[in-house]
Design a protein around this nucleic acid. Structure first.
Lengths: 129, 129
DNA sequence: ACAACTCACTTTCAAAATTAAAGTGACTAT
DNA sequence: ATAGTCACTTTAATTTTGAAAGTGAGTTGT
């Protein structure tokens, strides 16, 4: 996880986190690895948001370079990989929960409970109140 | 907040939040409005990450459309605006704190204390400043 | 008066990122 | 042999970004 500080825009922790995770896809991959039992390339690609294969490939590489994800071959000939969060990757759970909580409260999205593995139907179709 | 205008990629609250806030700049603008007393276009633009003027302009419009930011004229002739978080915008503080905490712990960024307005020098991966 | 300057943007345009689709390579199943 | 699966990579069009320059309303300095 140690990166030379020159790769970041600034010393601000928020800016640094956004440098690394600030896009529309990375945290969805983390979500699927964290909670939804998706561990192969195919499973990750099949999520309802439909990430393009080249982006998934690139995001997994970045997450691995950051030490947040690791992969292991689950088969040889041909070699196929299973991706999983590392300890550092699992440390993103609080962030994911916070983001989910906000999106539930303000954008009418569902609320997933990691304890039960169930998503609560949201309270309002397209907005808060 | 805003009406049913935005179409989201999915019902997932994380995906929805990323649809709206998932880029490298939006939350930095929120950070500056939330904690750093930056309220004019110029002040926001002068932050150390140096957002381009066109992006700042577009992000402020989006945040206003989402009801997270509101502006008021602080002067006529020429009219000039002061931007501020709405109640809904201020609800992003927990998310910001969580992102900051993670970036501090894992990317060696600083830790800002909203109570004191001070940033603690980091102790983590990249060493002290 | 007139030029210089400030602020809040908008426009321009090249570079980079995203998207959707098709292609590749190693194998397995029929 | 042919078709299919999986994990990608490549390609090409579109969109977003980033940096710089430009604009317009007004103020300040000489």
């Amino acid at each position: 996880m140690s990166q030379p500080q020159t790769q970041f825009r600034s010393r601000c922790s928020i800016a640094r986190t956004l440098d690394v995770l600030g896009d529309k896809w990375t945290l969805l991959v983390v979500r699927d690895l964290m909670w939804h039992g998706k561990h192969t390339f195919q499973e990750l690609q099949a999520s309802e948001e439909h990430i393009a294969a080249n982006l998934l490939s690139e995001r997994l590489k970045r997450l691995m370079a950051l030490g947040l994800v690791a992969r292991e071959a689950y088969q040889d000939r041909p070699v196929r990989y299973r991706y999983a969060l590392t300890e550092a990757g699992r440390s993103l759970e609080g962030l994911l929960l916070q983001i989910m909580g906000w999106g539930h409260a303000h954008l009418g999205g569902g609320l997933y409970d990691p304890r039960t593995g169930r998503t609560v139907a949201d309270a309002s179709p397209d907005g808060p109140q």
